[in-house]
Nucleic acid binder design. Structure first.
Ligand SMILES: [Mn+2]
Ligand SMILES: [Mn+2]
Ligand SMILES: [Mn+2]
Ligand SMILES: [Mn+2]
Lengths: 227, 227
DNA sequence: GCCGGATGTTAGGCACGTCTAATTCATCCG
DNA sequence: CGGATGAATTAGACGTGCCTAACATCCGGC
Protein backbone atom coordinates (compact mmCIF):
# COMPACT_ATOMS: atom_id res chain seq x y z
CA UNK A 1 0.00 0.00 0.00
CA UNK A 2 1.55 3.25 -1.13
CA UNK A 3 2.11 5.54 1.81
CA UNK A 4 -1.19 6.38 3.43
CA UNK A 5 -1.01 10.09 4.28
CA UNK A 6 -1.64 10.41 8.00
CA UNK A 7 -2.00 14.13 8.53
CA UNK A 8 -1.55 14.03 12.26
CA UNK A 9 1.69 12.07 12.36
CA UNK A 10 3.58 13.01 15.47
CA UNK A 11 7.34 12.89 15.19
CA UNK A 12 9.86 14.21 17.69
CA UNK A 13 10.40 17.27 15.51
CA UNK A 14 6.70 17.98 15.13
CA UNK A 15 6.25 17.59 18.88
CA UNK A 16 9.04 20.05 19.58
CA UNK A 17 7.63 22.65 17.21
CA UNK A 18 4.13 22.38 18.66
CA UNK A 19 5.44 22.57 22.20
CA UNK A 20 7.55 25.62 21.40
CA UNK A 21 4.67 27.41 19.69
CA UNK A 22 2.57 26.73 22.76
CA UNK A 23 5.20 27.93 25.23
CA UNK A 24 6.02 31.05 23.24
CA UNK A 25 2.40 32.10 23.08
CA UNK A 26 1.73 31.39 26.75
CA UNK A 27 4.76 33.52 27.56
CA UNK A 28 3.05 36.28 25.62
CA UNK A 29 5.73 36.37 22.94
CA UNK A 30 5.02 36.68 19.23
CA UNK A 31 5.16 33.32 17.47
CA UNK A 32 7.15 34.24 14.37
CA UNK A 33 9.40 32.25 12.08
CA UNK A 34 12.46 33.87 13.57
CA UNK A 35 11.33 33.36 17.16
CA UNK A 36 10.83 29.66 16.50
CA UNK A 37 14.17 29.41 14.71
CA UNK A 38 15.92 31.04 17.68
CA UNK A 39 14.10 28.90 20.21
CA UNK A 40 14.62 25.59 18.41
CA UNK A 41 18.15 26.30 17.17
CA UNK A 42 17.27 25.73 13.54
CA UNK A 43 17.36 27.96 10.47
CA UNK A 44 14.43 30.06 9.29
CA UNK A 45 13.85 27.99 6.16
CA UNK A 46 13.56 24.90 8.35
CA UNK A 47 10.82 26.64 10.29
CA UNK A 48 9.08 27.78 7.11
CA UNK A 49 9.06 24.24 5.80
CA UNK A 50 7.75 22.83 9.05
CA UNK A 51 5.02 25.48 9.29
CA UNK A 52 3.91 24.40 5.84
CA UNK A 53 3.65 20.81 7.05
CA UNK A 54 1.89 21.68 10.29
CA UNK A 55 -0.49 23.94 8.40
CA UNK A 56 -1.29 21.18 5.90
CA UNK A 57 -1.90 18.89 8.85
CA UNK A 58 -4.35 21.35 10.45
CA UNK A 59 -2.15 21.71 13.52
CA UNK A 60 -1.44 25.42 13.07
CA UNK A 61 -2.94 28.36 11.23
CA UNK A 62 -1.00 31.24 9.76
CA UNK A 63 -2.25 34.76 9.63
CA UNK A 64 -0.12 37.28 11.46
CA UNK A 65 2.38 34.89 12.92
CA UNK A 66 1.34 31.34 13.75
CA UNK A 67 -1.16 29.92 16.19
CA UNK A 68 -2.20 26.44 17.16
CA UNK A 69 -5.52 24.96 16.07
CA UNK A 70 -7.58 23.18 18.69
CA UNK A 71 -6.00 19.93 17.59
CA UNK A 72 -2.51 21.43 17.59
CA UNK A 73 -3.00 22.70 21.11
CA UNK A 74 -4.21 19.30 22.25
CA UNK A 75 -1.05 17.69 20.92
CA UNK A 76 1.14 20.44 22.38
CA UNK A 77 -0.42 19.95 25.80
CA UNK A 78 0.23 16.23 25.63
CA UNK A 79 3.92 16.87 25.04
CA UNK A 80 4.10 19.50 27.77
CA UNK A 81 2.37 17.08 30.13
CA UNK A 82 4.88 14.33 29.41
CA UNK A 83 7.77 16.76 29.76
CA UNK A 84 6.68 18.04 33.16
CA UNK A 85 5.68 14.64 34.48
CA UNK A 86 9.12 13.39 33.55
CA UNK A 87 10.84 16.34 35.22
CA UNK A 88 8.84 15.67 38.36
CA UNK A 89 9.65 11.98 38.25
CA UNK A 90 13.36 12.48 37.70
CA UNK A 91 13.56 14.94 40.58
CA UNK A 92 11.36 13.13 43.08
CA UNK A 93 12.16 9.49 42.36
CA UNK A 94 15.74 9.65 41.14
CA UNK A 95 16.85 12.69 43.11
CA UNK A 96 18.07 14.48 40.03
CA UNK A 97 18.77 18.19 40.69
CA UNK A 98 16.17 20.58 39.32
CA UNK A 99 18.67 22.20 36.97
CA UNK A 100 19.33 18.87 35.19
CA UNK A 101 15.85 17.48 34.71
CA UNK A 102 14.85 19.75 31.83
CA UNK A 103 17.53 18.52 29.43
CA UNK A 104 16.72 14.89 30.19
CA UNK A 105 12.98 15.43 29.78
CA UNK A 106 13.57 17.10 26.39
CA UNK A 107 14.71 13.74 25.06
CA UNK A 108 12.52 11.36 27.01
CA UNK A 109 9.27 13.20 26.30
CA UNK A 110 9.32 11.76 22.78
CA UNK A 111 9.74 8.18 23.95
CA UNK A 112 7.08 7.96 26.64
CA UNK A 113 4.12 5.69 25.93
CA UNK A 114 0.66 6.44 27.29
CA UNK A 115 0.93 3.36 29.46
CA UNK A 116 4.18 4.47 31.06
CA UNK A 117 2.95 8.04 31.37
CA UNK A 118 -0.06 6.79 33.34
CA UNK A 119 2.15 4.70 35.61
CA UNK A 120 4.47 7.60 36.34
CA UNK A 121 1.53 9.89 36.98
CA UNK A 122 0.05 7.39 39.45
CA UNK A 123 3.38 6.70 41.16
CA UNK A 124 3.73 10.44 41.80
CA UNK A 125 0.18 10.75 43.10
CA UNK A 126 -1.05 12.78 40.12
CA UNK A 127 1.11 15.83 40.66
CA UNK A 128 -0.07 19.24 39.44
CA UNK A 129 3.28 21.08 39.46
CA UNK A 130 6.74 20.14 38.24
CA UNK A 131 9.92 20.96 40.21
CA UNK A 132 10.03 24.47 38.74
CA UNK A 133 6.43 25.14 39.67
CA UNK A 134 5.23 24.75 36.09
CA UNK A 135 1.67 23.41 36.01
CA UNK A 136 1.28 19.89 34.61
CA UNK A 137 -1.54 19.74 32.05
CA UNK A 138 -4.10 17.12 33.08
CA UNK A 139 -4.61 14.06 30.85
CA UNK A 140 -8.03 15.51 30.03
CA UNK A 141 -9.63 18.82 30.85
CA UNK A 142 -8.69 22.46 31.05
CA UNK A 143 -5.19 23.73 31.69
CA UNK A 144 -4.06 27.05 33.14
CA UNK A 145 -0.58 28.14 32.08
CA UNK A 146 -0.57 31.65 33.61
CA UNK A 147 2.78 32.89 34.82
CA UNK A 148 1.82 35.28 37.61
CA UNK A 149 4.01 38.35 37.85
CA UNK A 150 7.75 38.56 37.47
CA UNK A 151 9.89 39.32 40.49
CA UNK A 152 11.55 41.96 38.34
CA UNK A 153 9.60 45.17 38.84
CA UNK A 154 7.84 44.04 42.00
CA UNK A 155 7.92 47.08 44.31
CA UNK A 156 10.11 47.16 47.40
CA UNK A 157 8.24 46.32 50.56
CA UNK A 158 6.13 43.61 48.94
CA UNK A 159 5.97 40.09 50.22
CA UNK A 160 6.37 37.91 47.13
CA UNK A 161 5.55 34.22 47.01
CA UNK A 162 7.60 32.35 44.41
CA UNK A 163 5.43 30.11 42.25
CA UNK A 164 7.46 29.37 39.14
CA UNK A 165 11.11 29.55 38.20
CA UNK A 166 11.94 29.34 34.51
CA UNK A 167 13.84 26.14 33.76
CA UNK A 168 15.54 27.39 30.62
CA UNK A 169 18.80 28.62 32.12
CA UNK A 170 20.33 25.66 33.90
CA UNK A 171 23.15 27.61 35.58
CA UNK A 172 20.83 30.27 36.94
CA UNK A 173 18.53 27.54 38.15
CA UNK A 174 21.28 25.81 40.06
CA UNK A 175 22.33 29.10 41.62
CA UNK A 176 18.79 29.95 42.68
CA UNK A 177 18.36 26.46 44.08
CA UNK A 178 21.50 26.83 46.17
CA UNK A 179 20.21 30.11 47.53
CA UNK A 180 16.87 28.54 48.41
CA UNK A 181 14.74 30.37 45.84
CA UNK A 182 12.15 27.72 45.03
CA UNK A 183 8.40 27.57 44.44
CA UNK A 184 6.57 28.08 47.72
CA UNK A 185 9.21 30.33 49.25
CA UNK A 186 8.19 33.85 50.32
CA UNK A 187 10.60 36.72 49.67
CA UNK A 188 10.52 40.13 51.30
CA UNK A 189 11.33 42.37 48.38
CA UNK A 190 13.76 45.20 49.11
CA UNK A 191 15.53 47.83 47.08
CA UNK A 192 16.10 47.50 43.37
CA UNK A 193 19.57 48.98 42.96
CA UNK A 194 19.61 51.39 40.00
CA UNK A 195 21.22 51.06 36.57
CA UNK A 196 20.87 47.30 36.22
CA UNK A 197 21.96 46.46 39.75
CA UNK A 198 20.73 43.71 42.04
CA UNK A 199 17.40 43.40 43.69
CA UNK A 200 17.82 43.01 47.44
CA UNK A 201 15.49 40.51 49.06
CA UNK A 202 15.11 38.72 52.35
CA UNK A 203 14.59 34.96 52.29
CA UNK A 204 13.73 33.52 55.69
CA UNK A 205 15.23 36.62 57.21
CA UNK A 206 18.51 36.18 55.33
CA UNK A 207 19.57 38.90 52.89
CA UNK A 208 20.14 37.96 49.27
CA UNK A 209 21.03 39.96 46.17
CA UNK A 210 19.44 38.81 42.91
CA UNK A 211 20.81 40.12 39.61
CA UNK A 212 18.56 41.29 36.76
CA UNK A 213 18.88 38.01 34.94
CA UNK A 214 17.59 36.14 37.97
CA UNK A 215 14.66 38.38 38.84
CA UNK A 216 13.37 37.93 35.30
CA UNK A 217 13.33 34.16 35.79
CA UNK A 218 11.29 34.17 39.00
CA UNK A 219 7.50 34.45 38.90
CA UNK A 220 4.86 34.49 41.59
CA UNK A 221 2.36 36.69 43.38
CA UNK A 222 2.43 39.47 45.93
CA UNK A 223 0.90 38.23 49.15
CA UNK A 224 -0.54 40.24 52.01
CA UNK A 225 -0.10 39.20 55.58
CA UNK A 226 2.07 39.68 58.64
CA UNK A 227 5.68 40.59 58.06
CA UNK B 1 31.40 24.02 7.84
CA UNK B 2 30.21 21.43 5.34
CA UNK B 3 29.12 18.27 7.07
CA UNK B 4 31.96 16.78 9.03
CA UNK B 5 31.74 13.03 8.49
CA UNK B 6 31.45 11.40 11.88
CA UNK B 7 31.77 7.72 11.15
CA UNK B 8 30.61 6.49 14.50
CA UNK B 9 27.36 8.43 14.66
CA UNK B 10 24.88 6.52 16.79
CA UNK B 11 21.28 6.88 15.71
CA UNK B 12 18.34 4.87 17.01
CA UNK B 13 18.43 2.77 13.83
CA UNK B 14 22.16 2.10 14.09
CA UNK B 15 21.74 1.16 17.74
CA UNK B 16 18.96 -1.26 16.90
CA UNK B 17 20.97 -2.95 14.16
CA UNK B 18 24.05 -3.32 16.37
CA UNK B 19 21.98 -4.67 19.24
CA UNK B 20 20.23 -7.17 16.99
CA UNK B 21 23.49 -8.38 15.46
CA UNK B 22 24.83 -8.88 18.97
CA UNK B 23 21.77 -10.74 20.21
CA UNK B 24 21.54 -12.97 17.14
CA UNK B 25 25.16 -14.05 17.46
CA UNK B 26 24.93 -14.67 21.20
CA UNK B 27 21.89 -16.82 20.51
CA UNK B 28 24.11 -18.82 18.20
CA UNK B 29 22.12 -17.89 15.11
CA UNK B 30 23.68 -16.91 11.78
CA UNK B 31 23.79 -13.15 11.30
CA UNK B 32 22.57 -12.89 7.73
CA UNK B 33 20.81 -10.16 5.80
CA UNK B 34 17.56 -12.06 5.92
CA UNK B 35 17.84 -12.84 9.63
CA UNK B 36 18.32 -9.16 10.40
CA UNK B 37 15.46 -8.19 8.10
CA UNK B 38 13.17 -10.66 9.84
CA UNK B 39 14.28 -9.59 13.30
CA UNK B 40 14.02 -5.85 12.68
CA UNK B 41 10.90 -5.96 10.50
CA UNK B 42 12.55 -4.23 7.57
CA UNK B 43 13.25 -5.29 3.99
CA UNK B 44 16.44 -6.99 2.85
CA UNK B 45 17.62 -3.98 0.83
CA UNK B 46 17.28 -1.83 3.95
CA UNK B 47 19.59 -4.23 5.75
CA UNK B 48 22.04 -4.28 2.85
CA UNK B 49 22.22 -0.48 2.89
CA UNK B 50 22.71 -0.33 6.63
CA UNK B 51 25.42 -3.00 6.54
CA UNK B 52 27.24 -0.84 4.02
CA UNK B 53 27.06 2.11 6.41
CA UNK B 54 28.09 0.12 9.47
CA UNK B 55 30.91 -1.44 7.51
CA UNK B 56 32.15 1.97 6.36
CA UNK B 57 31.99 3.09 9.98
CA UNK B 58 34.10 0.13 11.16
CA UNK B 59 31.30 -1.17 13.34
CA UNK B 60 30.87 -4.47 11.49
CA UNK B 61 32.86 -6.65 9.14
CA UNK B 62 31.42 -8.78 6.38
CA UNK B 63 32.81 -12.08 5.32
CA UNK B 64 30.45 -15.01 5.66
CA UNK B 65 27.60 -13.15 7.26
CA UNK B 66 28.26 -10.16 9.44
CA UNK B 67 30.08 -9.76 12.72
CA UNK B 68 30.74 -6.85 15.03
CA UNK B 69 34.14 -5.22 15.31
CA UNK B 70 35.48 -4.51 18.79
CA UNK B 71 34.03 -1.02 18.54
CA UNK B 72 30.71 -2.30 17.24
CA UNK B 73 30.44 -4.74 20.10
CA UNK B 74 31.22 -1.99 22.60
CA UNK B 75 28.37 0.10 21.22
CA UNK B 76 26.03 -2.90 21.10
CA UNK B 77 26.75 -3.69 24.74
CA UNK B 78 25.99 -0.11 25.73
CA UNK B 79 22.57 -0.37 24.12
CA UNK B 80 21.88 -3.76 25.67
CA UNK B 81 22.93 -2.39 29.05
CA UNK B 82 20.54 0.54 28.78
CA UNK B 83 17.75 -1.75 27.59
CA UNK B 84 18.09 -4.15 30.49
CA UNK B 85 18.63 -1.48 33.11
CA UNK B 86 15.44 0.17 31.90
CA UNK B 87 13.51 -3.10 32.01
CA UNK B 88 14.70 -3.65 35.56
CA UNK B 89 13.80 -0.12 36.55
CA UNK B 90 10.34 -0.24 35.03
CA UNK B 91 9.59 -3.53 36.75
CA UNK B 92 11.08 -2.80 40.16
CA UNK B 93 10.32 0.89 40.59
CA UNK B 94 7.12 1.33 38.61
CA UNK B 95 5.71 -2.15 39.10
CA UNK B 96 5.31 -2.72 35.37
CA UNK B 97 4.62 -6.40 34.56
CA UNK B 98 7.54 -8.28 33.06
CA UNK B 99 5.72 -8.85 29.80
CA UNK B 100 5.35 -5.11 29.18
CA UNK B 101 8.79 -3.78 30.02
CA UNK B 102 10.51 -4.95 26.83
CA UNK B 103 8.40 -2.85 24.47
CA UNK B 104 8.87 0.26 26.59
CA UNK B 105 12.61 -0.28 26.89
CA UNK B 106 12.89 -0.65 23.10
CA UNK B 107 11.96 3.02 22.78
CA UNK B 108 13.54 4.48 25.89
CA UNK B 109 16.93 2.85 25.35
CA UNK B 110 17.64 5.42 22.62
CA UNK B 111 16.80 8.40 24.81
CA UNK B 112 18.77 7.57 27.96
CA UNK B 113 21.72 9.83 28.77
CA UNK B 114 24.80 8.52 30.54
CA UNK B 115 23.91 10.65 33.51
CA UNK B 116 20.45 9.20 33.84
CA UNK B 117 21.72 5.68 33.18
CA UNK B 118 24.13 6.06 36.08
CA UNK B 119 21.38 7.33 38.36
CA UNK B 120 19.08 4.44 37.49
CA UNK B 121 21.91 1.96 37.96
CA UNK B 122 22.67 3.38 41.40
CA UNK B 123 19.01 3.57 42.44
CA UNK B 124 18.67 -0.13 41.66
CA UNK B 125 21.85 -1.04 43.54
CA UNK B 126 23.82 -1.95 40.40
CA UNK B 127 21.71 -4.93 39.35
CA UNK B 128 23.27 -7.74 37.33
CA UNK B 129 20.08 -9.33 35.94
CA UNK B 130 16.96 -7.87 34.38
CA UNK B 131 13.45 -9.18 35.16
CA UNK B 132 13.81 -11.97 32.59
CA UNK B 133 17.14 -13.08 34.02
CA UNK B 134 19.11 -11.52 31.17
CA UNK B 135 22.54 -10.38 32.38
CA UNK B 136 23.09 -6.61 32.41
CA UNK B 137 26.42 -5.72 30.78
CA UNK B 138 28.57 -3.71 33.20
CA UNK B 139 29.43 -0.09 32.33
CA UNK B 140 33.01 -1.29 31.87
CA UNK B 141 34.52 -4.76 31.83
CA UNK B 142 33.71 -8.19 30.52
CA UNK B 143 30.21 -9.48 29.90
CA UNK B 144 28.92 -13.03 29.81
CA UNK B 145 25.83 -13.57 27.68
CA UNK B 146 25.58 -17.37 27.85
CA UNK B 147 22.10 -18.82 27.77
CA UNK B 148 22.48 -22.05 29.67
CA UNK B 149 20.40 -24.93 28.30
CA UNK B 150 16.88 -24.84 27.03
CA UNK B 151 14.13 -26.50 29.04
CA UNK B 152 13.12 -28.14 25.76
CA UNK B 153 15.01 -31.41 25.55
CA UNK B 154 15.95 -31.54 29.21
CA UNK B 155 15.45 -35.17 30.24
CA UNK B 156 12.61 -36.21 32.51
CA UNK B 157 13.67 -36.61 36.13
CA UNK B 158 15.98 -33.61 36.07
CA UNK B 159 15.72 -30.75 38.49
CA UNK B 160 15.96 -27.62 36.35
CA UNK B 161 16.64 -24.16 37.73
CA UNK B 162 15.18 -21.42 35.53
CA UNK B 163 17.70 -18.67 34.83
CA UNK B 164 16.41 -16.82 31.81
CA UNK B 165 13.07 -16.50 30.06
CA UNK B 166 13.11 -14.97 26.60
CA UNK B 167 11.30 -11.65 26.59
CA UNK B 168 10.42 -11.65 22.91
CA UNK B 169 6.95 -13.17 23.11
CA UNK B 170 4.94 -10.96 25.41
CA UNK B 171 1.90 -13.23 25.61
CA UNK B 172 3.94 -16.30 26.45
CA UNK B 173 5.79 -14.28 29.02
CA UNK B 174 2.60 -13.20 30.75
CA UNK B 175 1.36 -16.77 30.76
CA UNK B 176 4.59 -18.09 32.24
CA UNK B 177 4.54 -15.32 34.83
CA UNK B 178 1.03 -16.25 35.88
CA UNK B 179 2.10 -19.86 36.28
CA UNK B 180 5.10 -18.84 38.39
CA UNK B 181 7.81 -19.75 35.89
CA UNK B 182 10.43 -17.10 36.66
CA UNK B 183 14.21 -16.91 37.04
CA UNK B 184 15.26 -18.62 40.26
CA UNK B 185 12.42 -21.14 40.26
CA UNK B 186 13.31 -24.85 40.24
CA UNK B 187 11.22 -27.20 38.10
CA UNK B 188 11.01 -30.96 38.41
CA UNK B 189 11.02 -32.04 34.81
CA UNK B 190 8.59 -34.82 33.92
CA UNK B 191 7.42 -36.51 30.76
CA UNK B 192 7.71 -34.91 27.37
CA UNK B 193 4.49 -35.98 25.68
CA UNK B 194 5.19 -37.20 22.16
CA UNK B 195 4.39 -35.61 18.77
CA UNK B 196 4.70 -31.99 19.86
CA UNK B 197 2.80 -32.34 23.09
CA UNK B 198 3.36 -30.67 26.40
CA UNK B 199 6.23 -31.09 28.80
CA UNK B 200 4.93 -31.99 32.25
CA UNK B 201 6.75 -30.33 35.11
CA UNK B 202 6.28 -29.80 38.83
CA UNK B 203 6.66 -26.29 40.19
CA UNK B 204 6.64 -26.15 43.97
CA UNK B 205 4.96 -29.54 43.90
CA UNK B 206 2.18 -28.31 41.64
CA UNK B 207 1.81 -29.96 38.22
CA UNK B 208 2.06 -27.79 35.13
CA UNK B 209 1.98 -28.55 31.41
CA UNK B 210 4.23 -26.45 29.22
CA UNK B 211 3.71 -26.47 25.45
CA UNK B 212 6.60 -26.67 22.96
CA UNK B 213 6.59 -22.93 22.37
CA UNK B 214 7.06 -22.31 26.07
CA UNK B 215 9.80 -24.84 26.75
CA UNK B 216 11.85 -23.25 23.98
CA UNK B 217 11.65 -19.88 25.75
CA UNK B 218 12.90 -21.10 29.13
CA UNK B 219 16.62 -21.49 29.81
CA UNK B 220 18.57 -22.57 32.85
CA UNK B 221 20.67 -25.37 34.29
CA UNK B 222 20.12 -28.85 35.61
CA UNK B 223 20.82 -28.91 39.31
CA UNK B 224 21.64 -31.81 41.55
CA UNK B 225 20.31 -32.04 45.07
CA UNK B 226 17.53 -33.36 47.21
CA UNK B 227 14.22 -33.95 45.53
C1' DG C 1 22.78 -30.56 -16.23
C1' DC C 2 19.13 -27.56 -15.76
C1' DC C 3 15.38 -25.31 -13.10
C1' DG C 4 13.20 -23.17 -9.13
C1' DG C 5 13.62 -21.15 -4.81
C1' DA C 6 16.04 -18.69 -1.49
C1' DT C 7 19.35 -15.05 -0.66
C1' DG C 8 21.38 -10.78 -1.45
C1' DT C 9 22.48 -6.74 -4.05
C1' DT C 10 21.61 -2.77 -7.15
C1' DA C 11 18.66 0.83 -8.83
C1' DG C 12 15.40 4.10 -8.11
C1' DG C 13 12.25 6.48 -5.29
C1' DC C 14 10.28 8.86 -1.21
C1' DA C 15 9.32 11.28 3.42
C1' DC C 16 11.63 13.64 6.95
C1' DG C 17 14.33 17.25 8.72
C1' DT C 18 17.96 19.90 8.21
C1' DC C 19 21.15 23.24 5.73
C1' DT C 20 22.94 27.44 2.55
C1' DA C 21 22.12 30.75 -1.06
C1' DA C 22 19.15 33.60 -3.41
C1' DT C 23 14.99 36.12 -3.59
C1' DT C 24 11.00 38.87 -2.10
C1' DC C 25 8.94 42.24 0.64
C1' DA C 26 8.08 45.64 4.12
C1' DT C 27 9.94 49.01 6.87
C1' DC C 28 12.83 52.41 8.50
C1' DC C 29 16.03 56.11 7.85
C1' DG C 30 18.56 59.66 5.74
C1' DC D 1 12.80 59.03 -2.67
C1' DG D 2 15.94 55.42 -2.38
C1' DG D 3 18.88 52.44 -0.17
C1' DA D 4 19.86 49.58 3.93
C1' DT D 5 17.99 46.30 7.07
C1' DG D 6 15.42 42.54 8.67
C1' DA D 7 11.99 38.92 8.16
C1' DA D 8 10.24 35.31 5.44
C1' DT D 9 10.03 32.35 1.63
C1' DT D 10 11.77 29.76 -2.39
C1' DA D 11 15.23 26.87 -4.55
C1' DG D 12 18.32 23.37 -4.28
C1' DA D 13 20.84 20.16 -1.79
C1' DC D 14 21.98 16.41 1.50
C1' DG D 15 21.99 12.42 5.00
C1' DT D 16 18.96 9.06 7.10
C1' DG D 17 16.14 5.26 6.78
C1' DC D 18 12.81 3.09 4.68
C1' DC D 19 10.40 0.97 0.40
C1' DT D 20 9.56 -1.87 -4.30
C1' DA D 21 11.25 -3.80 -8.58
C1' DA D 22 14.68 -5.94 -10.91
C1' DC D 23 18.75 -8.49 -11.24
C1' DA D 24 22.46 -11.69 -9.81
C1' DT D 25 23.89 -15.96 -7.35
C1' DC D 26 23.91 -20.05 -5.38
C1' DC D 27 22.18 -24.50 -4.32
C1' DG D 28 19.38 -28.57 -4.06
C1' DG D 29 16.29 -31.70 -6.59
C1' DC D 30 14.77 -33.89 -10.39
MN1 LIG E 1 11.46 21.83 31.29
MN1 LIG F 1 9.78 22.54 34.27
MN1 LIG G 1 14.00 -6.85 26.38
MN1 LIG H 1 14.99 -8.62 29.22
Amino acid sequence: MPNIRLVGTMTPAVEDYLKTIFLLSTRGEAVTTSALARELHVSSPSVSAMMKRLSDGRLVERETGVHLTAQGEREALRVVRRHRLLETFLARVLGMPWDEVHVEAELLEHALSERLEARIDAALGHPTRDPHGDPIPPAAGAHDESWGRSLAGTPAGSRFRVERVSDRDSDALRYLGEKGVRPGVVLEVGEQEPYGGSCRVLLGGEPLALGQVLTHLVFGTVVEGDA
